[in-house]
Simulated scan of single mutants.
Amino acid sequence: MKPIPLALAALFALPAWAEVHEVRMLNRNDQGPMIYEPQFLRIAPGDSVRFLPTQPGHNAATIDEMLPEGAAPFRSKINQEFGVAFDIPGTYGIKCSPHYAMGMVMVVQVGDDAVATIPEGLPKRAADRFQSIVEGVE
């Protein structure tokens, strides 16, 4: 068997370090209507999240007021599977664009820092759901 050059071996080893987490986008589950499952993820920098449109009519998009400094915003298309890597530590607020006012939100916490506080001015149901998510983490 021929030896693999070290640089090539390292290239194949890198993806094994990062995890891919799956989030289902649902119309309803036992926690209520218009919901991500799970509603909270704590992941390591470099991990990815795959958003799965388990039921129709949903997407995943960052919330500007809940985006760590230097992190790039994203917005998936409705009804399409979407994957994104989270490289910058911090608290990311994620929303379903059509159902944001109905409280379809989640938190992705990248790294081990405490979850950032929920900003003022969010739609009431979104703010209420964020509050329940954060209380469940503490």
Rank of each mutant, 00 (worst) to 15 (best):
G103K: 05
V84D: 01
A18M: 03
A18E: 01
P15I: 04
P123D: 06
A71W: 08
V107S: 03
S132K: 11
F74S: 10
Y92K: 10
G83P: 00
E37H: 05
D87S: 14
S132D: 04
P38C: 13
G70N: 12
A10G: 00
E65R: 15
H21R: 05
F82H: 11
A10N: 00
A44T: 04
D30V: 15
G57N: 05
M106I: 15
M34V: 14
P3F: 10
R28T: 11
I63L: 15
N29H: 12
M1C: 12
N59S: 12
M104Y: 08
R50V: 09
F74K: 11
P73D: 06
I118Q: 02
F74T: 04
R24L: 15
N27T: 10
C96V: 09
Q109Y: 14
E19N: 14
E138V: 13
F74V: 14
A60G: 14
P33C: 15
G90V: 04
Y92H: 09
V49W: 00
Y100M: 13
F12T: 00
G103D: 04
E65F: 15
K2G: 08
R50N: 02
H58W: 06
A114C: 11
R125T: 09
A116C: 05
D113G: 12
G90A: 06
E135D: 14
A18T: 04
M104W: 08
R42P: 00
G83K: 08
P56K: 09
M66F: 13
K2F: 08
A116L: 06
A72F: 13
G70S: 14
Q39H: 01
I63N: 06
P5C: 06
A72Q: 10
E135H: 05
V84Y: 04
E19P: 05
L14C: 02
L6K: 00
